[in-house]
Simulated assay, not measured.
Amino acid sequence: MDILKLISDINRMRILNILHNKNKTCVCVLEDILGLNQSNLSRHLNKLKKAGVIIGKKRSQWVDYEISEEFLEENHFVKEILETRLTGKIFLEDLKNTECTEC
């Protein structure tokens, strides 16, 4: 899948924003913050994972997701977007909500 098409979805950008700022994050935290049902969230995570954007690591009964450093090295523009451009209200609220949500 084309990277621009992949990141053009608001929910996938919200996921990347959270993962970029919180590092490893489990599905239950993403569900709570994004307000997506498990099926919808899994669809987005699978697209990101299939494209090599994120990595999932099993931890007991949870899967923790993180952004692939290799992907960021190969796609500097995505890293720049994540570091400097996501200042919209929804992105800031997502980050605020990560402060009080844990598995």
Results as ranks from 00 to 15, higher is better:
97 N>T: 03
38 Q>S: 06
18 I>V: 15
102 E>N: 13
34 L>I: 00
52 G>Y: 01
96 K>H: 14
29 V>Y: 00
101 T>P: 03
33 I>P: 00
50 K>F: 13
18 I>E: 06
81 I>W: 09
43 R>H: 13
42 S>Q: 06
77 F>S: 10
51 A>G: 07
7 I>W: 10
71 F>P: 07
43 R>M: 08
88 G>R: 15
81 I>P: 09
100 C>P: 07
103 C>S: 05
40 N>M: 07
73 E>T: 13
96 K>D: 14
23 N>C: 14
16 L>V: 07
5 K>N: 08
19 L>P: 06
30 L>M: 00
37 N>A: 04
60 S>Y: 09
13 M>Y: 07
36 L>Q: 08
60 S>H: 06
45 L>A: 04
65 Y>Q: 01
88 G>Y: 11
2 D>Y: 12
43 R>T: 13
78 V>M: 04
87 T>L: 05
48 L>W: 03
33 I>Y: 01
62 W>C: 13
78 V>Y: 05
62 W>M: 10
101 T>Q: 14
34 L>S: 02
2 D>N: 13
97 N>V: 00
18 I>N: 10
15 I>V: 12
89 K>P: 09
53 V>C: 04
9 D>G: 05
65 Y>S: 00
46 N>C: 03
31 E>N: 03
13 M>P: 07
6 L>Y: 03
96 K>F: 08
96 K>P: 04
44 H>I: 01
15 I>W: 12
25 T>C: 13
36 L>H: 02
61 Q>F: 13
66 E>F: 03
53 V>E: 02
17 N>F: 02
94 D>N: 14
83 E>R: 12
3 I>F: 03
35 G>N: 07
60 S>M: 05
33 I>D: 00
68 S>Y: 04
79 K>D: 12
36 L>T: 06
4 L>W: 01
88 G>M: 15
67 I>H: 04
52 G>N: 01
90 I>Y: 12
55 I>W: 00
49 K>H: 09
82 L>Q: 05
70 E>D: 12
35 G>A: 05
76 H>N: 14
93 E>S: 11
53 V>Q: 01
